[in-house]
């Protein structure tokens, strides 16, 4: 098949960006979208042009590195699919495809399609953990966790931290990411002692970097792991509760 790619090129954070158009023929439909870029890059190098920079690593939808805005949709047209798992058979022969980086103030551009998503790490550092220093743990089976609870926590923990939710949001909010991280831990019995501090600190840090959520719901539709927007509601509930709780008292009562 044949496709026409219109790709955002920008040499560095301070450089002027622009779209460039490339025609590619002899595209195989078994190719992944990133393999299409491999082929494009080989061609560019052959012509003496610098290849398109893009983030990728696992190429199986789990590391959260790949991050392309494809025709205005993070990770492209297929639901629940990261860019690296998208295959060319999902596109029509002769398709014209526009590819841009994630665009959000909190994700400064590094080069071409690569952005810096460190702000996500700052959110996690502010409370996305259970304090359990190595060596201090009791037997794993001492804490019984109902299967349904473990499953819900896992649904949230499946987040790959790619940032598609932020890219999809008209406000560049990171509520789905933060909610997934908060609720993974807040749902579990082990996460209870730090529950209220966790949600407060993480939400406050999130607000330093990202826009506010106005319930558009674009994030859920864009999420390659189909993380449910319900987690945002749960996080908001915990956040509000935390504001009313006397924290010290809460920790005494468990």
């Amino acid at each position: 098949m044949k496709v026409t790619l219109t790709v955002w090129r920008q040499a560095g954070p301070a450089a002027q960006g622009r779209f460039e158009t490339y025609e590619l023929d002899e595209v195989s439909e078994d190719m992944s979208f990133l393999e299409l870029f491999d082929v494009l890059n080989e061609r560019l190098i052959a012509k003496g042009e610098e290849p398109v920079a893009f983030d990728h690593d696992c190429r199986e939808g789990i590391c959260g590195s790949c991050s392309m805005m494809i025709d205005g949709r993070p990770h492209g047209p297929e639901l629940g699919t990261a860019t690296c798992q998208l295959h060319m058979r999902k596109f029509a022969d002769g398709a014209k495809i526009t590819v841009e980086p994630w665009r959000a103030g909190a994700f400064p551009l590094v080069r071409d399609l690569v952005v810096d998503r460190s702000a996500f790490d700052r959110i996690v550092e502010s409370g996305g953990y259970i304090t359990a220093p190595t060596g201090s743990a009791p037997d794993g089976n001492l804490i019984l966790i109902p299967k349904a609870v473990a499953d819900s926590a896992m649904d949230a923990a499946a987040c790959i931290g790619c940032g598609a939710c932020v890219a999809a949001c008209p406000n560049s909010a990171a509520n789905l990411f933060t909610a997934a991280k908060v609720m993974h831990l807040n749902l579990l019995p082990q996460g209870q002692p730090e529950r209220w501090e966790r949600v407060t600190n993480m939400v406050d840090t999130m607000e330093q970097f990202f826009g506010s959520c106005t319930n558009h719901g674009e994030c859920e539709a864009a999420c390659p792991k189909e993380i449910s927007i319900d987690f945002i509601a749960l996080m908001n509930r915990d956040y509000i509760k935390a504001q009313f709780k006397q924290r010290r008292l809460a920790s005494q009562r468990g």
Partner: peptide, 22 residues
């Protein structure tokens, strides 16, 4: 055996049986 305990304490959502055990 300590690894599993450590990971559970950190909140790793290992698969559980219906009774809540690992």
């Amino acid at each position: 055996v300590d690894i599993i305990d450590q990971c559970v304490a950190q909140g790793v959502p290992f698969a559980r049986e219906y009774g809540g055990l690992l």
